[in-house]
């Protein structure tokens, strides 16, 4: 198998520029990066280095100013908004720093959210959500609301929501940033086990302890890759 065919993510000459009034802010400048299928990549860098912006481009949450983002065989810059939404629903699971769960929904209903976009019926959605929550060790918390869960548990619900559709790619933005060390470790172990089961994971983090769990770490600085390789 060639190296190119094993790449799940290909970032080619990507730039991203924001405008603040008349000022142009170049966040990413001609960036190239590939991520292999089954890889657990950590993206590190100081604040403002462009790592979250890069994650947003890979997840189809934002569009590059120039260059191309190719995930499997899909060029994201060629998809319109509706196609991009459908692509995200099929291929990407997101884990956020502050969990971003719906406070009015139980853990199970939160996990079922992405399944509302599928053709699964109510019973099937419930079963899938239970399997996902079981996978993150929360089968006993199905009917709990987020406010009754600890930070670590909320993040695990967030991970269950991200994996419930069995996406190709898992994108995590500072998944341990709001957690204590013990809960953070549990979440990282969970991500590692997901990688071992074949998931491709890209994780933005400030924390060297977290990046140490990744199979590869890249550093971003001022919109450019500065170093690449294992920590």
């Amino acid at each position: 198998m060639s190296a190119e065919s094993s790449d799940l993510v290909r970032i080619e000459h990507v730039t991203k520029t924001f405008h603040r009034g008349s000022e142009e802010i170049h966040v990413l400048s001609g960036l190239d990066l590939t991520v292999a299928r089954g890889e657990f990549l950590a993206l590190m860098g100081p604040s403002g280095s462009g790592k979250s912006t890069l994650l947003n481009l890979i997840g189809g949450l934002d569009r590059a100013t120039s260059g191309s983002v190719i995930i499997e065989n899909d060029r994201l810059d060629e998809l319109d908004d509706r196609q991009l939404a459908a692509w995200r629903a099929r291929h990407v699971g997101f884990v956020f720093q502050f969990y971003n769960l719906m406070p009015v929904l139980t853990a199970q209903k939160n996990v079922e959210l992405p399944l509302l976009l599928t053709h699964l019926n109510r019973r099937e959605r419930r079963e899938h959500a239970e399997i996902a929550l079981n996978a993150v060790g929360l089968s006993h918390r199905l009917n709990h609301f987020p406010r009754t869960l600890s930070g670590g548990e909320q993040q695990r619900v967030g991970i269950a929501r991200a994996i419930v559709t069995d996406p190709t790619l898992l994108l995590c933005d500072e998944p341990t940033g709001d957690l204590d060390r013990k809960s953070g470790d549990e979440v990282l172990s969970l991500l590692q086990s997901l990688q071992e089961n074949g998931k491709t994971i890209i994780m933005v983090t400030h924390d060297p302890h977290a990046s140490a769990r990744a199979s590869r770490t890249v550093h971003l600085d001022k919109g450019q890759l500065s170093t690449t390789g294992p920590e």
């Binding site: 997840g59 949450l61 908004d81 509706r82 939404a85 459908a86 995200r88 629903a89 099929r90 699971g93 997101f94 956020f96 971003n100 719906m102 959210l113 992405p114 976009l117 929501r161």
Partner: peptide, 11 residues
């Protein structure tokens, strides 16, 4: 924003 991120279309 989260709903949109997980694939809910704008419409």
């Amino acid at each position: 924003g989260v709903l949109k991120a997980i694939g809910f279309p704008n419409g």
